[in-house]
């Protein structure tokens, strides 16, 4: 519990800063309106108004909270104005893409570990690809797949898969190589086949690496799904909420979508962290 107090302090400081910034940034509009209406506003009135504007430059935290409550709890989940509905759309694309990317990444990593030619030819490209802004091709993938007739979930999932693919490959290659020469030699003296070595030694000892790269991959998947929702125009999903909000100046909606995305990311990464702790403890690898 000792760690809670500092965190609470920091969060409180952030909230205080947020309120101060909201007052500061929205004050210009309030003053402008007051001048046009020909009224003098006291400081208290200015502050009160800045925190309750319809389309503020920076919505105050309680406005975002109210919007969040309104769009998650007060609306039916099937409603198009429900944030849960949009988050669900994004979540399904994220999870599908994440599953595809992770499976493909693990398969490629196993191939790389067992085939030297593959290792030498693919691995430098896999590492180099991490320095490339892959996200830039998202609009192209969406439009191209759309023109071939693939629509809906798959194109977004494809981007998510692509983004989570490389971290998993790089992490798993490291993990599958983590057993030292002594352990590998031991299995050789047991006359273990390479499949048995993979299943009984390499795979279990790669678990910490797997979970570390799963966390990175999951975060990347979510970003991929959100960005994948941008080029189709504002239709459905958290990305669409962001885009629609930015088109129509609905800042409160943008912020609530942003918080929704943050909660989703935190929940997904937290879930993987939980699975990691349980798995590693049962395997006796917990630190």
């Amino acid at each position: 519990m000792k760690g809670v107090l500092p965190i609470v302090t920091i969060v409180a400081a952030i909230l205080a800063l947020w309120y101060a910034a909201a007052v500061g940034m929205n004050a210009a509009w309030t003053r402008d309106q007051a001048v046009r209406a020909g009224v003098e506003l006291s400081l208290a009135e200015v502050v009160a108004d800045t925190l309750h504007q319809e389309r503020p430059k920076l919505p105050a935290p309680h406005q975002v909270a109210a919007e969040l409550w309104d769009t998650t709890v007060a609306k039916k989940i099937t409603s198009k104005r429900s944030l849960v509905y949009h988050a669900g759309i994004t979540l399904s694309a994220t999870l599908l893409g994440f599953a595809i990317g992770t499976a493909a990444g693990i398969a490629l990593a196993i191939g790389i570990v067992h085939n030297r030619a593959m290792d030498m030819s693919v691995m430098p490209w896999a590492i180099a690809s991490q320095t490339i802004p892959i996200l830039a091709i998202a609009p192209m993938i969406i439009v191209v797949l759309n023109s071939v007739g693939v629509q809906g979930l798959l194109p977004k999932a494809f981007i998510s898969a692509y983004l989570s693919f490389f971290p998993v490959v790089v992490g798993m290659v490291k993990g599958l190589r983590s057993p030292d020469a002594m352990q590998l030699d031991l299995l050789k003296t047991y006359n273990a086949s390479s499949v048995q070595t993979l299943w009984k030694l390499r795979w279990p000892s790669s678990m910490p690496y797997l979970f570390a790269s799963l966390k990175v991959g999951m975060a990347a998947s979510l970003v991929g799904a959100i960005v994948g929702e941008l080029p189709t125009g504002a239709v459905r999903g958290l990305g669409a909420r962001l885009l629609a909000g930015s088109y129509y100046g609905q800042t409160v909606q943008i912020w609530s979508a942003l918080i929704g995305a943050a909660v989703l990311a935190a929940a997904l990464v937290g879930l993987i962290g939980l699975a990691q702790r349980i798995t590693l403890r049962r395997m006796g690898m917990a630190r």
């Binding site: 966390k215 975060a219 979510l222 959100i226 960005v227 930015s246 990311a265 935190a266 990464v269």
Partner: peptide, 13 residues
Amino acid sequence: ALPIIGTAPILVM
């Protein structure tokens, strides 16, 4: 770990 890219529309505004 958050999708910070989502702040882009706000900052563009």
